[in-house]
């Protein structure tokens, strides 16, 4: 790759993007941190009041909607937004990875596999707000496919509107998010699979490996870079989850399905407490950063020169 020396005209290629990003991305990020510390980013404005310091962080952490020790202790919802996000990752990540690998591998041998793949991908195409409504719809007592299936398999007594009970609201949303997000994992793994050299797999066949061995000893290890990206992106998505919850349960009932992004919105819109809202946003970002760094490292290593 050639590299052309910098000149004033060449700098101008960067100017428009730089201005927009500085004003609408970089400045707001810094300002949010300041707000969370009770500092007004532009002197003279009065968005937040109170003494500068970490007071907001203390307040957020001790807010039951953020972390509910009693709920955690008794293993009953609500446990607090941050715990809900963690549960989300703990369930959603492994499920969606398994679904992704299984479909990517097995659909190769299915007639019309690409059609099924595009079925699964639909969840990535639609607005997540519609995705949330579809989840609520699917878990509805009378209308939903979940209860239809339960009834069909003789488990009709379990039928209920899953999203309106504290015990099941979060879990139904998480399962729904597996349904929506698997389009991502299947697509990424399918692309990864098709770029694996066929000869390596054939070498394993000649060496005497059966299907299971090839899957676990050759294919999955060779897909490690894909897995890294997929894991990072999935965790990021799980942490930022908002639309699905807003559309279906609004974090309810009684905060049983609340998540960080929604808590941030509640502080902002319902309570008008901008400092607290900024604090939740900052915490959310802090949680996200290690994953982002992991992801950046894998990108910089893989091909960016």
């Amino acid at each position: 790759m050639t590299s052309l020396r910098m000149s004033p005209t060449r700098i101008s290629f960067f100017i428009p993007a730089l201005i927009l990003i500085l004003v609408f991305v970089v400045y707001p990020i810094i300002a949010t941190i300041l707000l969370s510390l009770n500092i007004n980013p532009i002197p003279g404005t009065e968005i937040v009041e109170g003494a500068p310091g970490l007071e907001n962080y203390v307040k957020v952490v001790s807010d039951k909607r953020f972390l509910n020790p009693k709920g955690v202790e008794q293993a009953s919802f609500p446990m607090g937004a941050i715990v809900h996000n963690v549960i989300w990752i703990a369930i959603h990540l492994p499920l969606t990875l398994v679904v992704g690998i299984l479909f990517a591998v097995f659909l190769q041998y299915v007639k019309g596999g690409s059609i099924i793949r595009s079925f699964i991908f639909l969840g990535m195409v639609i607005p997540m707000i519609v995705g949330g409504l579809l989840i609520q719809f699917s878990f509805d007592k009378d209308l939903g496919v979940v209860n239809l299936l339960l009834k069909a398999s003789g488990l009709g007594f379990l039928a209920k509107t899953w999203t309106i009970y504290p015990d099941t609201a979060l879990f139904s949303l998480i399962l729904g998010s597996v349904w929506l997000w698997s389009g991502f994992t299947v697509t990424m793994y399918s692309a990864g699979l098709s770029s694996l050299p066929r000869e390596v797999i054939e070498a394993a066949i000649v060496d005497g490996a059966d299907f299971k061995t090839i899957l676990f000893k050759i294919i999955i290890p060779m897909l490690k870079p894909v897995t890294l990206t997929v894991v990072a992106m999935t965790i990021l998505w799980d942490l930022k989850i908002f639309d699905i919850v807003y559309a279906s349960t609004q974090g309810g009932p009684g905060g049983a399905s609340n998540v960080l992004a929604l808590l941030m919105y509640e502080y902002f819109a319902r309570l008008g407490d901008y400092a607290m809202s900024a604090t939740v946003a900052t915490i959310l970002t802090l949680v996200v950063i290690p994953v982002v760094l992991l992801w950046i490292r894998s990108i910089m290593r893989g091909g960016e020169g």
Partner: peptide, 13 residues
């Protein structure tokens, strides 16, 4: 990095 920062982090300002 900017690609991955949550929208929530910039919306208030």
């Amino acid at each position: 990095f900017l690609m991955a920062v949550p929208q929530q982090m910039m919306i208030i300002p």
